[in-house]
């Protein structure tokens, strides 16, 4: 009897733990997604202030941003910046990752530490440093100054992703290509890049997403060339306006799409073509 009792009590205890852990997970998701969800809901609400109860459904705020030339310019700027950043950062990341894979040299660990450093620097410090540096060399306030700054920031992410993939590569694969008559450049094109393709695509999307969302550096460096996050801050500073919710919803959709595509390419494709 006593044995039965103790099993009952432990099962109650473990069930309690079970439920509290589930509750914890739910809470985490609530805290992450509730604000975004609210923002989405209020972007379709006709009231000027975010209050409950909701008023009627409207697309008015979306129409407002659609008709706002500033928004269009900002979206265009953001797209140019994120696409260029993605290309440059992924190229840089690939080269660094390949250097790490292929060569051994003195101070390699110092080299790797330096390469991976940028994301660990507080953004505000990096942004200020970039601004000071760019104005010194007369390059501030340009779209391409944001591109340079973002490439520095995001290249380590690309490098980390591509490096993971290269580490899965059979060491003999490259030599096998040489052995079959491929020069080093041809091997790069015919073997290394195809092998890394899932990681490269993933790095492109992820760096684009980071660049598209990035605010601090853009705000300091952009000058008159506002990107979307910079524009959002300006709207919020001016007045409380639900069109921010509409823009926010749009930005959220864009970045989520980029990140999810990156994730799909990295986990699914990489997992499938390598065992």
């Amino acid at each position: 009897m006593s044995g039965q009792q103790s099993t009952t009590s432990t099962s109650i205890g473990s069930r309690l733990l079970d439920w509290s852990l589930r509750g914890y997970v739910v809470l985490v998701f609530v805290f992450i997604f509730a604000p975004i969800l609210f923002s989405v809901v209020f972007s379709f609400n006709s009231a000027r202030f975010p209050t409950i109860p909701l008023e009627s459904f409207t697309l008015h705020w979306y129409q407002t941003i659609w008709n706002d030339p500033d928004v269009w310019t900002a979206v265009r700027n953001s797209l140019i910046v994120s696409v260029c950043t993605a290309l440059i950062a992924t190229l840089l990341g690939f080269c660094t990752a390949y250097t790490d894979y292929r060569y051994n040299f003195r101070f390699k660990s110092a080299y790797l530490a330096l390469v991976l450093l940028p994301p660990t620097i507080p953004l505000i410090i990096m942004a200020l440093a970039m601004l000071a540096w760019f104005s010194k060399i007369g390059a501030s306030g340009q779209l391409w100054s944001i591109i340079i700054a973002h490439s520095v920031l995001t290249a380590p992410f690309a490098m980390a992703i591509i490096r993971l993939r290269l580490n899965q590569m059979d060491r003999d694969l490259e030599s096998a290509a040489w052995n079959l008559g491929a020069s080093e450049w041809r091997t790069m094109r015919e073997v290394i890049v195809p092998f890394c393709k899932p990681a490269i695509v993933s790095a492109l999307f992820l760096t684009a997403a980071v660049s598209f969302d990035e605010f601090a550096i853009s705000w300091f460096v952009s000058g008159l060339n506002k990107t979307v996050p910079v524009l959002i801050l300006e709207i919020v500073q001016g007045n409380i306006d639900p069109q921010v919710n509409a823009i926010g919803t749009f930005v959220f959709l864009v970045s989520m799409t980029l990140v999810i595509v990156a994730q799909i390419f990295f986990t699914f494709r990489a997992g499938k073509s390598f065992s």
Binding site: D170, D172, A176, N179, G181, A182, V191, F195, K197
Partner: peptide, 21 residues
């Protein structure tokens, strides 16, 4: 003479087949 200029194909212990082909 560099490897790619030789005609000395090797069958690898790991086989080293290209997984993406």
């Amino acid at each position: 003479v560099s490897p790619h200029q030789r005609d000395t194909p090797l069958v690898w212990q790991s086989l080293a087949l290209f997984p993406f082909l």
